[in-house]
């Protein structure tokens, strides 16, 4: 009878040699290999997402309610100050739903990018000691952002139901499309920036500042109609505005969930026409998703190039 050692030796003799990651990045094949490797670690990804969520609010009495409190306070600030004090709500029907829809989707994007960017550096202890497909860390950050997004989504849907504004129509299909576009771009940037952040720590501070700017570059607290009116003289600027995939996704998301935007409403005796949504939004969304996938591919290739030195740079 063969001993355990002999059985093992026989089994090992059958296995092909695998070159460790040092074989160098091959473009498409390398991407496929990486995706397959991440897929085989999906259980770990799941555990890392749980770890992130569990540890974030551990030992706090309110726990994960905190992840709701922040957007709700934001909602109150924008509703009261921008909506009522500065008067944006006079031109936007159901302003609360409008703003909260925007904040929810924006939260997904900004949390994916900002926690994703820091993810490689903050998991340095693991990266230096164990080999794992490193893309898993920005992806885990994305996973926890998705969880927070879903919680906010529940609040949003509850609010829509309470106000009796449930938008049952084909427009609802815009919602998953917009989420997909945001996730594709969010993951692409998270992967790219997390790798760059290892070499240049300024990236994570830069990201904070840029996200602050980008917040105002998308129709979150002001409506699309406002943009259309503002650039009436130069309509080409609208196309520039829509080049930002997040602005486009934001519009699609609002089109799906914010019923007042598709209806004529009367506020204080003033008639508000439905939003003049940009033409061929479906096509634009498809293009944004496809371009996003290309960017994601490039980001992963750059990541693969840079990750060889992660362990010594962190």
């Amino acid at each position: 009878m063969a001993t355990q050692a002999e059985v093992r030796a026989a089994r090992l003799a059958e296995l092909p040699f695998e070159a460790s990651a040092s074989a160098g990045p091959r473009s498409v094949g390398g991407f496929v290999t990486s995706v397959r490797e991440i897929f085989s670690h999906r259980e770990l990804l799941d555990l890392l997402i749980r770890r992130e969520l569990k540890s974030r609010y551990k030992d706090s009495a309110l726990g994960f309610l905190w992840s709701l409190i922040k957007p709700l306070v934001q909602l109150i600030i924008y509703y009261v100050f921008i909506g009522q004090v500065l008067g944006a709500a006079r031109n936007v029907a159901d302003f609360a739903i409008f703003v909260f829809a925007g904040l929810t989707l924006w939260g997904l994007y900004s949390e994916t990018i900002s926690t994703g960017t820091a993810s490689i550096v903050s998991n340095g202890g693991l990266i230096k000691k164990v080999y794992l497909p490193r893309e898993i860390f920005p992806l885990a950050a994305t996973g926890s952002a998705i969880f927070n997004f879903l919680v906010q989504m529940l609040v949003l849907i509850a609010a829509i139901l309470v106000l009796g504004q449930f938008p049952v129509s084909l427009n609802l299909l815009y919602v998953p499309a917009s989420i997909a576009v945001v996730l594709i771009w969010g993951v692409a940037f998270a992967v790219l920036l997390s790798a760059l952040n290892v070499y240049l720590r300024d990236i994570q501070y830069l990201v904070e500042v840029v996200m602050l700017l980008l917040f105002w570059a998308s129709p979150i607290v002001y409506s699309w109609s406002f943009v259309v009116t503002a650039v009436k003289q130069h309509t080409w600027l609208l196309d520039v505005y829509l080049l930002n995939p997040i602005s486009l996704a934001m519009l699609a998301f609002q089109r799906g969930l914010w019923q007042a935007g598709n209806q004529t409403r009367v506020i204080d005796g003033k008639t508000i026409p439905p939003q003049d949504w940009p033409a061929s939004m479906e096509l634009r969304l498809v293009v944004a998703a496809v371009v996003g996938l290309v960017v994601m591919f490039i980001a992963q290739r750059i990541f693969a190039r840079l990750q060889g030195n992660f362990a010594q740079e962190i």
Binding site: L12, S20, A21, G308, N309, A311
Partner: peptide, 20 residues
Amino acid sequence: KVLGGIIQPNDGKVERRGRL
């Protein structure tokens, strides 16, 4: 670390098989 794939060598290669 190079054997474990944690660091990539600048030159040369490491091949291995089996669970590590």
